[in-house]
Amino acid sequence: MSAAIDIRDRGGPAQPLLTVDKLIKHFPIKKGLGGKKAVVRAVDGVDFEILKGETLGIVGESGCGKSTTAKLIMGLIEHDSGQLLFDGEKIGSRALPMRSFRAQTQMVFQDSYSSLNPRMTVEASIAFGPQVHGVPKRQAIERARSLLARVGLEPTRFAARYPHELSGGQRQRVNIARALALEPRLVVLDEAVSALDKSVEAQVLNLLLDLKQDFNLTYLFISHDLNVVRFICDRVAVMYLGQVVEIGPADTVLASPSHPYTAALLSSMPSLDPDNRTEVAPLAGDPPNPIDPPSGCRFHPRCSLMEPVCPANVPPLDGVGELHRVACLARQPGSGHSLAPAQQVAA
């Protein structure tokens, strides 16, 4: 496929491919015998945009809401409030019905085995989506075979195999081929390489880079591995307890982080230098429970920069540089935090 103009591209290059606006999802749970109602604030006011042709990474620890965000975007679960726009159109509106949105957005999951039907050959799995969307069977199978070849699996050897006859890396290639079968514009990769061995992970990352170029794709890349994110992403959003705490160009955020949590995540990575091992853990304890998140800045109980203003005020996600935004009172002019930069005088 060439980089020719895509007729589905309505908004032009400046229009973000996906706009996520004040997205909220709370899961109700019952607590204790009395059945006292509580909610898990899985995603609690998330805003970001994915530009056309870029790779946006979302990083964060378990329970931070990164996978829930992905599922909300895909419409696999319904959001409580907020808005999702795809190429400027509201998803599920008359202009962009769910069905046509789904044909343009596909997802690859972490567990390569459970996301394939064990009773279908890989060729049938890949051809299934296009057939549902009205492509004749023969044509769909033909395309499945060419996609298999494209992801590095010789069709004559692999097309008729079942998922259990493949290795983890091969299965993930099949999942990627299946995601591409509908010629999507956005591909959501939820920990797609996390379960793979390192040498296989590198192969799949290279494949993702090539496919992005060949098929004009935009990626939302969710991962907990900062090395991988730094390698593959143009921009990165850091999530903590259901909120984005920092977002910006990957090189900036991961080289000179503004949020203390991002800094702690980075210095938690094991060093590869035997002469320079980590001496002190940057954070104590586990990430807190999203059922009852701390007041004000949610990171304050674990933060080294905590001051009395932090539990009392919710920090807004504000710009600290071009395209770089951070939600931290220590970085916000006039917040009352002793490290906050001086307030800018209005020109």
């Binding site: 390192k198 040498s199 992970e201 590198a202 192969q203 990352l205 390698f231 590869l272």
Partner: peptide, 24 residues
């Protein structure tokens, strides 16, 4: 050597291809 070189942080240039160990 393959394990050390195929790490994503070992990439020479961001966005360039990673060195991989071929096969399985």
């Amino acid at each position: 050597i393959g394990l050390l070189s195929s790490r994503a942080d070992g990439a020479l240039v961001k966005g360039s291809r990673l060195e991989t160990i071929p096969g399985s």
